[in-house]
Design a protein around this nucleic acid. Structure first.
Length: 540
RNA sequence: GGCCCUAUCGUCUAACGGCUAGGACGCGACCCUUUCACGGUCGAAAUCGGGGUUCGAUUCCCCGUAGGGUCACCA
């Protein structure tokens, strides 16, 4: 019993500690936010006055010439102590959160990249830090300048911002820096030029990293400690030549130069991490904190890829999804607020987000749920946005061949039946609304089907309805309803309204007859009733 | 195959050793209604298996199993 109580108490205490941690985590003013968030990591020392006041160079400064790099004395506090050290362009400060997102411009913005960007964005904003974007275009074959524009456009559409947006940071423009790093590594004996056996498509001479063959353990904020024996990596290639760096080298140098404190990226990079840590250590750089977020999966539960039909952000945009919906959906894929809320604005996400609540396992990307989010956000549209949406629907209707007046009156009806804008086209192409465009051909078996006791009875009601609505001068839904309603009540609404609706649409399912009649106009409505009556006569 | 990561309804997820395992999407039924759509109510639906630890495991540990990632002179 006593033991039980002690356990209970301990649990309570743990919970309190956690709440404190959570509180601090969500309050940017906390002096050491990240250290609190991840107590497992090496504790961060109290920042010195200088560190706190340290002038963080503007993002623009990152790309400046090596010649402008701060003199060695200026970074005396840096862990780099070796003579002739590799000096970072921007001093590392563990107390100022800096994250980054490095897309490679080999295609338009992938949903996975978008979500990684979102997590980085949320984390940086929440901690009052910075987020840098950089184009990883060291692969000259596959990188295309137009893809850069696509990616940037996609991010802007989502409403995500970054802190070095005045210029595009490209790895292809940092060759000087990579060369310096390579020269440093070679000079310190941690890399060497390797003569290779001549092989097709391969260089005879490459630069390899001298693997110290040790076990690398790093702490992942989401997963805890992860260890790798790097021996199996061998002396891996880090550059084709001094001026042709490869991914791992470039990433590490950039992360050092940008003074990145938190690397938040996809789980598929876990196995790249030890390699990068090795290079980092060889360059005498401090280790940033890592957080590997779960992958976005396709229906087959494998990594989402373009090859398997994964859509890019611009496709979702083209289909008429709202950016808020996409953002909200992406945020909840692999993260949860800890309670039952589901609808979040970007602002709300910034306060609610925490890496501790990020899931470990991959998440299947379900467009069905995305549609639901869009449906919800359609309801939350501001009056102006609502108007804009209706205009888009109208335009889509006109594009499908609807005359202006029809498009106008059909718009509200359509707006109630769609989750995304492109559903308008789908709806039209399905033929479901075809009776608005041309008179229906009646299937008399369909006429017999259902409520009406007999064709004769249907004919009677149709004629009666016709007589009631024919004299109408103002042709509105309300007016039509007003004159027919009592009669319908007397004879059974279904008995009257169903034939009425069928006469207008020729379909078993459609909006109610008043709505259709109003849109069709008086003349067409009467004509269709007449046709329907004639068809019944033929069959009598 | 080696190494690494992961495992709760079909899907996204809650649970921090203790309520009948909660919510959302989707699905079904019912209500609203002349049918459809909208809206509302209700319902079916899950702890991968086996061992431990414990008074008590979804939760902690081990072993299986399954899924995924990664093993380039791509990023």
């Amino acid at each position: 019993m006593i033991r039980f109580l002690i356990k209970k108490l301990r649990a309570l205490l743990k919970r309190q500690m956690r709440d404190i941690a959570l509180y601090q985590d969500t309050h940017p003013t906390t002096p050491v936010p990240t250290a609190v968030a991840t107590p497992v990591l090496t504790p961060v020392q109290e920042p010195s006055e200088e560190e706190l006041e340290a002038d963080i160079p503007s993002p623009k400064a990152i790309g400046v010439d090596a010649a402008d790099a701060p003199a060695k004395e200026e970074v005396a506090d840096s862990p780099v102590s070796v003579a002739g050290a590799f000096v970072p362009m921007q001093a590392f400060n563990p107390n100022v959160v800096i994250t980054r997102v490095p897309p490679s411009p080999t295609g338009s913005l992938h949903v996975g990249t978008a979500r990684t960007m979102l997590f980085n964005y949320l984390f940086a904003r929440q901690n009052g830090g910075k987020l840098y974007l950089r184009m990883e275009d060291t692969d000259k074959e596959r990188s295309k300048i137009e893809h850069e524009a696509d990616i940037i456009e996609g991010l802007q559409w989502l409403g995500l911002t970054w802190d070095n947006s005045d210029t595009i940071y490209r790895q292809s423009e940092q060759t000087e820096r990579y060369r310096e790093a390579l020269e440093y590594l070679i000079a310190t004996g941690t890399a060497y030029v390797s003569k290779e056996a001549a092989e097709e498509g391969k260089r005879a001479e490459v630069i390899r990293f001298k693997n110290p063959n040790k076990v690398v353990t790093f702490t992942d904020i989401i997963r805890g400690d992860i260890s790798f024996d790097t021996t199996e990596l061998g002396d891996f290639v880090i550059a084709k030549s001094l001026d042709e760096p490869l991914y791992h080298l470039a990433v590490v140098v950039d992360d050092i130069d940008m003074a990145i404190t938190h690397i938040i990226r996809g789980e598929d990079h876990i196995s790249n991490t030890p390699r990068q840590i090795l290079i980092q250590e060889a360059l005498g750089a401090p280790r940033p904190q890592y957080a590997h977020v779960p992958l976005l999966l396709g229906e087959d539960k494998a990594k989402l890829s373009k090859r398997k039909g994964a859509k890019s952000i611009d496709q979702f945009k083209a289909e008429g999804y709202l950016p808020q919906a996409v953002l909200n959906f992406l945020a909840l894929l692999g993260w949860n607020p800890g309670d039952d809320r589901e609808l979040f604005s970007l602002e709300e996400l910034i306060t609610a987000f925490s890496l501790e609540n990020v899931q470990k396992g991959g998440a299947v990307f379900s467009e069905t749920k995305l549609r639901w989010f869009n449906h919800e956000y359609l309801k939350l549209l501001t009056p102006e946005a609502q108007k804009e949406l209706l205009n888009s629907i109208k335009a889509a209707l006109e594009a499908h061949g609807a005359p202006k007046a029809l498009a106008r009156s059909l718009t509200p009806l359509v707006s109630e039946r769609i989750d995304i804008l492109s559903d308008v086209t789908k709806l039209l192409e399905s033929g479901e609304l075809q009776y608005f465009f041309e008179a229906p051909t009646y299937d008399v078996n369909g006429l017999l089907w259902k409520k009406a006791e007999s064709l004769a009875e249907m004919k009677t009601h149709l004629s009666a309805v016709r007589d009631m609505i024919a004299p109408l001068e103002t042709w509105t839904l309300e007016q039509i309803k007003a004159v027919v309603w009592d009669y319908a009540g007397e004879h059974g609404r279904g008995n009257v309204l169903w034939p009425f609706r069928f006469a207008l649409s020729g379909r078993e399912q459609s909006p109610d007859p008043f709505e259709i009649a109003e849109i069709l106009g008086k003349e067409e409505t009467l004509a269709r009733i007449d046709t329907a009556v004639a068809r019944i006569n033929e069959h009598a």
